[in-house]
Simulated assay, not measured.
Amino acid sequence: MTGERGLTRHVVVMGVSGAGKTTVARGIGALTGLRFAEADDFHPEANVARMRAGIPLDDADRWPWLRALASWMAARHAEGVSTVLACSALKRSYRDVLRQGPPQVEFVHLDGPAELIRDRMARRTGHFMAAGLLDSQRAILEHLDREESGVVLEVTPAPDELVAAAIARLGLPPATRP
């Protein structure tokens, strides 16, 4: 979904690791034309090494990363390109940094039982995030406040159902095909 400046949409699919952020964000991008990005790809190698070792990131590790994500969204907005980003965005203060990018950011918080998410993390391969970090992420998670633009979706439905629910609840139009 692209258009004139000011008509862009910027969505962050948020939640703890293993909630399905990447799958849902990719699905939203595929059906709406929003440009997808994986926030993990913006982490410096030092952050990735810490998470691989099972060491939680602290706020000092996260601020430059969050500012880079906000800048990426702002640059796409300046180009007239809408975005969908898979990003943990666990704290309100982190979401505040993301909102410093484009004029408006909407959030889709994928939330669910720790047992289900832990099971998903145990079955996935090729991801650097140690499953043991789930508890530390859940401990710092701050749910969306009423004044934050976004929706909360329970993660138990199938990914395609979550994608459809996110698109419908945010009122995102389908991608235009040539």
Rank of each mutant, 00 (worst) to 15 (best):
T23R: 05
V24E: 06
V24N: 08
A25F: 04
R26K: 14
G27Y: 05
G27N: 10
G27C: 08
I28Q: 05
G29P: 04
L31D: 13
L34R: 10
R35C: 05
R35E: 15
F36H: 14
F36G: 07
F36E: 10
A37Y: 02
D40A: 07
H43D: 07
H43G: 11
P44E: 13
A46C: 06
N47G: 07
A49H: 00
A49C: 02
M51F: 00
R52D: 00
A53I: 00
P56G: 05
P56F: 09
L57A: 09
L57Q: 08
D58F: 02
D58G: 14
D59A: 03
P64D: 09
W65K: 09
W65D: 05
A68S: 13
A68T: 13
A68K: 12
S71M: 00
W72Q: 03
M73N: 00
A74S: 09
R76N: 13
R76Q: 15
H77P: 04
H77S: 15
A78H: 09
E79T: 04
V81P: 02
V81E: 14
S82A: 07
S82Y: 08
S82K: 07
S82T: 12
V84N: 06
L85W: 09
L85S: 12
S88G: 12
A89Q: 00
L90V: 11
R95V: 09
D96E: 15
V97F: 05
V97M: 03
L98H: 03
L98S: 05
R99M: 10
Q100T: 15
G101M: 10
P102L: 09
P102V: 12
P102H: 10
P102S: 01
P103N: 07
Q104P: 06
Q104I: 11
F107T: 01
F107A: 00
F107E: 01
F107M: 05
V108R: 06
V108T: 08
H109I: 10
L110W: 08
A114Y: 00
E115C: 07
L116I: 14
I117E: 09
M121W: 07
R123I: 02
R124L: 01
R124P: 03
G126R: 08
F128Q: 03
F128S: 05
F128A: 04
M129Y: 01
G132W: 04
L134Y: 04
S136A: 13
Q137Y: 05
R138Q: 15
R138I: 15
R138T: 11
I140G: 09
L141A: 02
H143D: 13
H143L: 15
H143S: 15
L144W: 07
D145L: 15
R146P: 14
R146C: 12
E147N: 14
S149G: 10
G150I: 04
G150P: 11
V152W: 01
L153C: 08
L153K: 11
L153P: 11
